[in-house]
């Protein structure tokens, strides 16, 4: 599949999609978005690269084997769970180490903690799982079509 238009568009669109996916992941807690949606967008970006410039290129862009990404994601989610267990005595309980409680009862600081780690884990699992299946699907369908 050597379409000049596709590969040109991909060169612009794929990085944009990837940045957008991280944006969607981060904003997910307060606005529509989150790990699932972000992960799907990122996966589509890599699939686009694979379709435009070949699977090898997409693998290079991904840098790590898809299943390793998915495994890391799962591990991160589990770590987030144990974080809550150790710090607050409940598995997967949300921990916000950077939140500051002001004197008037309002909260300040950065909302970064175990929940974000968990969502990041979801994000990575979705990317790794979808890309892993897709690349192998393409490979199984046959090198002759590429």
């Amino acid at each position: 599949m050597n379409s000049l238009v596709l590969s040109t568009i991909t060169r612009i669109l794929a990085p944009l999609l990837l940045v957008f996916s991280v944006f969607i992941l981060l904003r997910g807690h307060n606005d529509p978005g989150g790990g699932f949606i972000g992960g799907l967008i990122a996966a589509i970006a890599f699939i686009l690269i694979s379709k435009a410039e070949g699977r090898r290129q997409a693998m290079v862009a991904l840098r790590v084997r898809p299943l390793s990404i998915a495994g890391t994601g799962l591990l991160m989610a589990i770590v987030a769970g144990f974080w809550g267990l150790i710090a607050k005595g409940a598995f997967l309980k949300g921990i916000w180490p950077l939140i500051v409680y002001n004197a008037d009862g309002s909260k300040g600081g950065l909302p970064i903690g175990s929940i974000l780690l968990f969502d990041l884990g979801v994000f990575l699992v979705v990317i790794g799982g979808v890309c892993g299946i897709f690349f192998n699907l393409e490979k199984a369908v046959g090198e002759d079509t590429d």
């Binding site: 807690h29 606005d31 989610a77 997967l92 968990f118 969502d119 884990g121 979801v122």
Partner: peptide, 25 residues
């Protein structure tokens, strides 16, 4: 600390379900 209730359910209130789900994926 989340304004998107759906996402908060997924990653906090019912995070255990989500953990199981990504394991399935």
């Amino acid at each position: 600390l989340g304004r998107n209730v759906v996402n908060v359910i997924l990653v906090d209130f019912r995070a255990m379900d989500t953990l199981g789900e990504i394991a399935v994926v």
